[in-house]
Write a protein that binds this DNA or RNA. Structure first.
Lengths: 191, 191, 191, 191
DNA sequence: TATGAATGAGGATTCATTCAT
DNA sequence: AATGAATGAATCCTCATTCAT
């Protein structure tokens, strides 16, 4: 008797998750190009072949991973519902969380950032991610508008850039970067 | 025959420069891992063998390149002599130049940034670069101290991070990023 | 419960046929080596596991298929009973049918031919097929003998070779090959 | 001092030839799909890498080989200059040579034939080969026209098909195929 | 009987590096 | 100083086959 559809589905999901987790770990430690499919499979405790059952290439594995991370991050980073407005409190929280997230797992974020900087290959991802970020940009633009900023669109881009810069430095040097002080500066300036 | 020696030296330097220029171009276009030694040699118009006369590996080529770029950038970006003090004017100039440099050649800077984000491989470079940045950090700390900032060290790191974030976004999206408006915000805030 | 046994047997035969049909289709389209077991199973609408219940390997599947095709073809191509003699009419029919069969399904026949040309792997099949062809060769030899040919054995081999050559060209270029004219030539020469 | 251009050219040609010879041998013995690049390189006594210096893929290697064989064969098989007319003597020679060539090296010709029967992959080769065969078809058509055949184009195609059929059977069973007798039949019929 | 997840050996391809000239 | 032919380890990916259910 074969397993039921549902049983198979469960098995599939479980294996996929193991592979994605392993990929995250290995990509984070070695970077995309130095990470071998072999190492990922070994880390996941599955065969290489299985990987290719679920992801049609190493690149697709990265894509899926990035999209997944992005979705998770968005959920934590921008905890508002569509249409809801940003408040000072929420922006404060975004700043704090955005920095803490990186400090907790600098390796993962290195991988994440590195993609933005890879030439060619990753353009597909960029589009997808930009699309996902739209509501976040909109909400911020709204927020800055209500705060009375003259050019809320520019301010939003400025804020995003600043946050990315901070996160970048947290990643590079999590030990000596004065995260707490910088948080305060940011909150004072933007929230 | 000292004359001949000098000529050899000239040829050496010229070839080296051609190779470094080619490497920069190819690394910038393809990223370190996707760039092949072959492509670099071809771009430089020399043989692979010659390349290995001057640089003992692909990695060394990258190192030399990065250090060189860093030195150039520092010269332009921080045009003060050791001991000299930063003025509002100079900081303003730093902000403007720092952004314009990236906008002029986003590809090169992508390569540059990507190194900071590569795990493992580039740890060696980091030390060297951090060392080179020391005087720049010091001068900025001094500057912020004189401007009356409470925590000038934190402010310096904040400023560096912000500048990197802006530059990152300029690189990613040089066309729609509101560089001029952001410059104004930065100058108002830091200069 | 003999009834149940019979039902099982029916199911078995039905599944086997579906798999063989699918195999024929996929082998014909992609060639033996490029055809995947997966594709065959999918085309047949069964699981890979089931396939291996009926055929112990991809190679056996090919064997069964070839033998089956051979039997079918023989039935159509040489519609005489053992011992019965070939007549002009029957030979004419063989020529016409032999060419039409190929023109109707050039892909299948390509697969069929390709086996004769594969080194190593398929030697096993050759023996089996040669054995099956014996009565056909005998009947032809008889026929040519009665027609007064000096060397009926050679003539038989010649006829077989010619037919295969014609069929090969029909397969390669079914559109522009002058099949009807060639039929006439053949009939005039051999029938 | 580097070698001269000419020296390099010689080395290249020599290596290429070794690889092509090896490829012919291995493809002939195992068939395209079962032949491994490794085996070819080993047979040629060079590294796998070198193969890829000269041929950008296994498939291209096959293409080059086929084209080369074709050219050689044409030179022997159709020893007339463009514009020159075919005579009975030349056609007789074509028949004899065409069969002897195959009998001498059935393996090579198996490889050659197998390509015509491979689905998909080899379409590029087909076009090239058809183009090369044009002058041969033209000369034959002319010949049959002057011989007073009613439909010389059809006759040409018939003749080609017959020759291929004979060659095919020579390949499959070089030992018992009555080559000499068949030659006589062919000569009587076509020359 | 029937399923499809899992395996892993095997194969094509790439590319930094070496070395004879 | 200069060349580019040659190497081979490393890597991605495929697919026939097995097996627990």
């Amino acid at each position: 008797m074969p397993r039921t559809k549902q049983q198979f589905e469960e098995i599939r999901l479980k294996s996929q998750k193991r592979i994605l987790d392993a990929a995250l770990e290995v990509f984070a430690k070695q970077g995309y190009h130095l990470a071998t499919v072999d190492a990922i499979a070994k880390t996941a405790g599955v065969s290489k072949g299985l990987m290719y059952n679920y992801f049609k290439s190493k690149e697709e594995l990265l894509h899926e991973l990035m999209i997944g991370m992005m979705e998770n991050m968005m959920a934590e980073f921008l905890p508002i519902k569509p249409g809801e407005k940003l408040t000072k409190k929420i922006v404060t929280q975004m700043i704090n969380e955005g920095i803490d997230l990186v400090l907790e797992n600098p390796k993962y974020w290195k991988m994440y950032f590195s993609v933005f900087v890879q030439p060619d290959v990753m353009n597909m991802i960029m589009d997808k991610i930009m699309e996902m970020l739209q509501p976040y940009f909109k909400a911020l633009t709204n927020y800055f508008e209500e705060k009375g900023e003259k050019d809320p669109v520019a301010m939003t881009r400025y804020f995003s850039a600043v946050m990315d810069g901070i996160q970048l430095h947290c990643m590079i040097d999590p030990k000596t970067f004065p995260a707490e002080k910088v948080k305060k500066i940011l909150i004072k300036q933007f929230a």
